[in-house]
């Protein structure tokens, strides 16, 4: 499908790290796990708005740098005792390039 947008090479994201992408819906964080899977989520922590791209990545989770909320990058759900959810967006890795689905970035409403 031509819907996928190439945002750059996998190497642009450090393993167990993230980079930001500016979109019409606001800032999206694109994550790379230790085993080279990619995930895209809304960059804003629903708790106090912490920038998730700056968090520590472990397994397929990220820990918000402000107050240590932990989110599963695949479901967007807060882990443990915290309740909340971040929007997730389709992302994939193809030929060493990281792709995001443009339609999802257009269609979805901005997360609260």
């Amino acid at each position: 499908m031509s819907d996928w947008i190439d945002i750059g090479p996998l190497d642009a994201i450090p393993p167990r790290g993230a980079r930001k992408v500016e979109t019409p819906l606001g800032c999206v964080a694109v994550f790379r796990t230790g085993d080279d899977r990619v995930f895209a989520v809304n960059n804003r922590c629903p708790h106090k708005g912490g920038p998730l791209n700056e968090g520590i990545v472990h397994g397929q989770s990220v820990t918000c740098p402000l107050h240590n909320w932990v989110f599963d990058l695949s479901t967007g759900l807060a882990q443990g005792a915290d309740e909340g959810r971040i929007d997730t967006f389709p992302a994939k890795l193809e030929g060493g390039r990281v792709l995001l689905a443009a339609s999802a970035l257009r269609a979805r409403p901005v997360a609260a």
């Binding site: 947008i5 945002i7 750059g8 642009a12 994201i13 450090p14 980079r19 930001k20 992408v21 500016e22 979109t23 019409p24 800032c27 694109v30 995001l100 443009a102 970035l105 257009r106």
Partner: peptide, 15 residues
């Protein structure tokens, strides 16, 4: 230095 800026700007493209 590149790690400090967004890897891509899709504000126009995706819109």
């Amino acid at each position: 230095a590149e790690q400090y800026v967004p890897v891509a700007d899709l504000t126009k493209f995706a819109a």
